[in-house]
């Protein structure tokens, strides 16, 4: 098990699509996307932009599912649903955990880039 809750089989299949250059490029891109989405979550929740938060959570959900980060994907899915239904209170409860898992997953990928 990696530092973040990532299904290694799915992640390996994802990273083994091409050679080492492709692997590094994919890792870098996913890391960059998750970092951007994490920053967007913080920024948008301050101004209460539920539409923007919904899109950010949706994007995290898609990336996380693709790399096998199932806990993050589930959390992002719940957060997206909360935003879509305008349930700001539920999103506020979910957001700290979502942000933390996003950060940890990004860090885990960053550590893999250096291997």
């Amino acid at each position: 098990m990696l530092q973040a809750d990532i299904d290694e089989t799915i992640l390996t299949a994802f990273l083994d699509l091409g050679g080492s250059e492709m692997r590094q490029a994919l890792l870098a891109q996913v890391h960059s996307d998750l970092t951007r989405c994490g920053a967007a979550l913080a920024e948008l929740s301050e101004c209460g932009d539920m539409g923007g938060l919904c899109r950010a959570a949706h994007e995290i959900k898609g990336i996380a599912a693709t790399i096998g980060a199932t806990t993050l994907s589930d959390l992002a899915g719940q957060s997206e649903a909360a935003c879509a239904h305008g349930d700001a209170a539920l999103f506020a409860r979910l957001q700290p955990e979502l942000s933390e898992h996003t950060r940890i997953t990004a860090e885990t990928l960053s550590s893999l880039m250096q291997v």
């Binding site: 699509l17 960059s32 996307d33 898609g62």
Partner: peptide, 16 residues
């Protein structure tokens, strides 16, 4: 596809 990492992934699979 708007998410860059997913776009990169799908494009890689298609090119392969």
């Amino acid at each position: 596809e708007d998410t860059p990492s997913l776009q990169m992934l799908y494009a890689t699979v298609l090119r392969k």
